[in-house]
Design a protein around this nucleic acid. Structure first.
Lengths: 336, 336
DNA sequence: AACGCCCTTGTAATCGATTGCTCACCGTGG
DNA sequence: CCACGGTGAGCAATCGATTACAAGGGCGTT
């Protein structure tokens, strides 16, 4: 059933039907009403691909995340989708699973569907394959790592703020040996968190000794492994700050296995504030980086770029703060 | 840049370009090579909407879940998407957040984009709005609750099997007072789990007393609330079986707050086996219902229906088992 | 009464592919 | 030498919308 059918039954031309459907005010209300009646009766729904073809606008945004099964992302997907729907957009979701091949395939698929913009939430891996998109002038939004080009936006995250709060919180609780478990070395955002930790420690005259910087990979398993190493040290750290919440959950798990009580024997702080953080035992003190804010900003960045016809030559920047959220996984250092 | 441009530069007709792109064997290899060269040089990518328009096939499947932020679903999304990509399909994801209005809107959007099939993973809520889809002969796949109609598949879940294993496991550990925390009353799959529990208890001569059936809602908070009630009873249950893992996590959390040690003071069993279940403290014994299997079956059901021209009049049925996975949240009943 | 303008509606081109049908060309067999 | 079949390429219709432009009708003005 197409627009012609409607036109025939309503006794008007397809142009009029199209105008009625798109609520163009110049159509005679009488006619419009007749058209709508037929549309309702037949349950006509316009074909988006036909529309997209002639208008040149797909009304689709791409969303590339590194792993949808990482609890950090579903919230982003949810908010991004909600916002998109509000503006009449659809989203094309793709999970790269940290694989450049898959990233490339995703980009290809998105170009085939003629996305009008893409949000890249991989936090700094494999952006090289994206030149196909920039070549085509597709608006992009990155977190921190986008190049300064027209139609490329960046959401700058203030990692230092939240991490500094976390470090000072631990210091206030008399912790001196504070360990940090990093994320994957290749991940820019993980490196930024690490630097923020080192700087925050320096600021208050504490040493971020190399042996207190353990290597993690932003998974629970990685957190467990790193924690095992830390717990084997002669002088065990009394507090652990983690590059993300999953890592912190791993630490908590290993602490449990080693009969360390939280928070009395060990304080743990996470990063991200995934929803789950408030439900673990004990509820996790963590640095919040609002996923819903991030998603909302990303969407708006794309929308702005799509509607702008002369883009800023260096792209646009947005900011997102981070803040410590106190729960129950931190306490006075043991023996103090 | 379109197919005409390629045709012009390669000195052939658009028909030949189209045939070369689609690897139709009748084109002269010489010509095909020439066409491919131009395509590579210009970075031409065919326009999917144009293709979809003429072929009448969007190569999009819809996937409706109740809440993407529920950790049960991301794994499904991941596997569904992977499989789809393998077969050259795209997926349109939608999260209803248990709201019939949003479900209706999703369906509308999917019809606008002319999806070729829809997987409905809401486990039994609000399927009424789906008649727009069945009217249009769009293949559907449900979990348990789909009507018996052509082009409607059902994945039947054997809840009883896994739940019986769980109940017998607890009974073997000498638990007698075994509580069950249900899911939302309106959710068919939750009701099925409840019935399976009652039946399993009866089978081994234990009573599923009404006061041991607590009302939950498949969220952590719901689990906490239900657990609080159960813990206030004069004769506290020694084991709790939960309608899903989130509920179980809530119970563990409340147990912790009430200084109940797991598993020595209380045994807890979940349902679903979300990935997180192995990472909580202690690792959760739970009934596995494989999310990746579920997603794979759902995709295949749709694919089968799309390719079949004379569908089975009563739809097709698929089966999925459930099985208990032993971890460390269960132990001998206290005092035994 | 005639002219012209404005407002609404319709005709037809267009978006970018696919594909049925026609046609040209080649080789083969009578 | 001609007819015929087979093969591969091109022309043009088509999918379902939007929209530039043309056309027609009504009304005000002179």
């Amino acid at each position: 059933m197409d627009i012609k059918e409607i036109a025939r039954r309503a006794g008007v031309s397809t142009a009029t039907v199209s105008r009625a459907v798109n609520r163009i005010p110049t159509v005679d209300p009488k006619l419009a009403k007749r058209v709508w009646k037929v549309i309702d009766e037949l349950g006509y729904v316009p074909n988006t691909q036909a529309r997209a073809l002639v208008s040149g606008r797909s009304r689709i945004f791409g969303l590339i995340v590194s792993e949808i099964t990482n609890p950090f992302f579903p919230e982003i997907v949810q908010v991004f989708e909600n916002t998109a729907v509000q503006y009449g957009y659809e989203i094309m979701l793709s999970s790269t699973v940290h694989d450049p091949k898959r990233m490339e395939l995703s980009v290809r698929r998105m170009i085939e569907r003629r996305v009008e913009g893409v949000a890249i939430m991989t936090f700094g891996m494999e952006e090289s394959v994206l030149e196909h998109l920039t070549d085509r002038n597709v608006p992009l939004v990155f977190v921190d790592v986008g190049p300064a080009r027209p139609r490329v936006s960046n959401i700058r995250i203030d990692y230092l703020r939240g991490i500094r709060q976390a470090v000072q919180h631990l210091a206030a609780l008399r912790h001196k040996r504070i360990a940090f478990i990093t994320g994957p070395t290749g991940l820019k955002s993980a490196m930024a968190r690490r630097s923020a930790f080192i700087q925050s420690m320096k600021e208050i005259g504490l040493e971020a000794a190399p042996e207190l910087l353990a290597q993690g990979d932003h998974t629970v398993e990685g957190g467990m492994l790193a924690a095992e190493k830390l717990f084997k040290m002669r002088l065990r750290p009394t507090a652990v700050l983690c590059s993300n919440d999953l890592t912190a959950i791993g630490v908590m798990r290993t602490a449990f296995e080693n009969d360390l009580r939280l928070p009395s024997d060990l304080s743990v702080v996470g990063f991200d504030d995934i929803r789950l953080a408030q439900f673990v035992v004990p509820p996790l003190t963590t640095v919040q980086m609002s996923q819903s804010e991030l998603a909302r900003i990303a969407f708006e960045a794309l929308l702005n770029d799509v509607e702008r016809d002369t883009p800023a030559p260096e792209g646009t920047e947005y900011r997102l703060e981070t803040n410590l959220v106190l729960r129950n996984s931190t306490a006075l250092a043991p023996g103090k």
